[in-house]
Design a protein around this nucleic acid. Structure first.
Lengths: 220, 220
DNA sequence: CGACACCTTGAAGAGGTTCAAGAAATGTGG
DNA sequence: CCACATTTCTTGAACCTCTTCAAGGTGTCG
């Protein structure tokens, strides 16, 4: 979070994130239509956000982990426009939105921070649109794995090993594929020696191969 | 834009949108990598935003018309992360970003307004993800046409007639389809008497049929 | 008026889906 | 702690939608 703040400012920020809430696995943090009054910073656990249509369609719009912010969709209409569901037992900081607005006016660093968070989400979604609009199944899954493992690594986890918190169906929904296609693509990667997959445990054996599949240059 | 402001506040807002810029058809408003320093409010004209990858892939992430805001992607990284190209001669208000932040701190209504604009963009992109992730070609094109005509109607244009400002290829890129598929789907709609298509001139003959295709209930 | 970009349409092919069946893991209640 | 129900995952085969490749037509702009 932002830095270089005075003591008084820090106290206010501390107060902003003072309220905690625990969510059991499978339970919603919020649901489509719920009144919006706070953003949530994930302390621990793993979430998915998704939108459901009347005709039973369902689209996972993202997976969120510790340190990430959920609830931005609620600002525009005063109600949440999607569901946020815990994929494992989780704890979040409840940040009342009116307090955020109030504090942002007093602390420019917080204001900038909030804007950047929203802008980052917009840019992330552009990337998902690229993935959904132009990639084939293998490319999608490779991009997904690289993205997940990169975010986990940034949090101190392994660069090559991960435990999926979501089902094949949820991965498929996110990637615009059927669960069978996700499963088959995992099997294909395993045959090719790129990954080792045992249910939700994934070990990446050849990161560069995944990068080549998505056309990401070697460095970085 | 926000209302219920004092005279002094209005003056500041007027100053914020004082600078204009004209962009010729085909010219970029900004390009990926450009330093970010302003948001743009479209006064007249029509834009597309798109991201290009090294390997020649290209994804249109949106089409924007009068009254809409472009440039939000630039906030997070201090550089624009996509290209914005005018699809017809256009004019925009240049709103320097540091002035927006400054003014937002003084005028809460503006602060809320900015947040809502960003939140709306996030929600819009969720809708695009649903479209790209779970709809078939006909559903995508029907949703696209309904969305376009609805936005045009909100600006005083016809509910049933529109002129496309973009090529089949650009529509296809946005919808995750090849241009041939877009063309064929238009022809199919025309055969079925749902629309009349003559190049870029489209007349919607049966709005409800389009709604049925995307599973939107009759009302609204 | 000619060059170029854009659009349409056909035919063949590929990638992903659907349907189906069975195996493996997970959770639950006795 | 074990048996059983349930959920999740894997794999096969047929099918379908969309893509690819190709050719010709239409419109537009200098």
């Amino acid at each position: 979070m932002p830095m270089g703040l005075s003591g008084g400012e820090m106290d206010k920020l501390d107060e902003l994130v003072a309220t905690r809430r625990k969510i059991k696995r499978g339970a919603p943090l919020f649901s489509n239509g719920d009144r919006f009054n706070a953003l949530y910073a994930i302390r621990t656990g793993f979430f998915k956000t998704c939108i459901a249509t009347e005709d039973g369609r369902d689209q996972v719009t993202g997976f969120q982990m510790a340190g990430e912010i959920i609830g931005l969709d609620g600002i525009v209409g005063d109600r949440h426009m999607c569901d946020a569901v815990a994929l494992e037992d989780a704890e979040v900081c409840v940040m009342p939105y009116d307090r955020i607005e109030e504090l942002s006016r007093l602390v420019p660093a917080l204001q900038t921070h909030v804007h950047k968070i929203m802008s980052r989400e917009i840019v992330r979604e552009h990337g998902v649109m690229l993935l959904l609009g132009s990639m084939r199944a293998e490319e999608r899954l490779a991009a997904f794995l690289l993205n997940l493992v990169q975010r986990l690594h940034a949090r101190g986890f392994s660069q090559s090993e991960l435990v999926l918190r979501m089902t094949r169906e949820e991965i498929g929904s996110y990637l615009g594929l059927k669960l069978e296609t996700v499963s088959r693509t995992f099997s294909k990667f395993a045959e090719e020696g790129i990954v080792e997959v045992k249910q939700r445990h994934v070990r990446i054996l050849d990161t560069q191969a995944l990068r080549n599949i998505v056309n990401v240059p070697a460095n970085q």
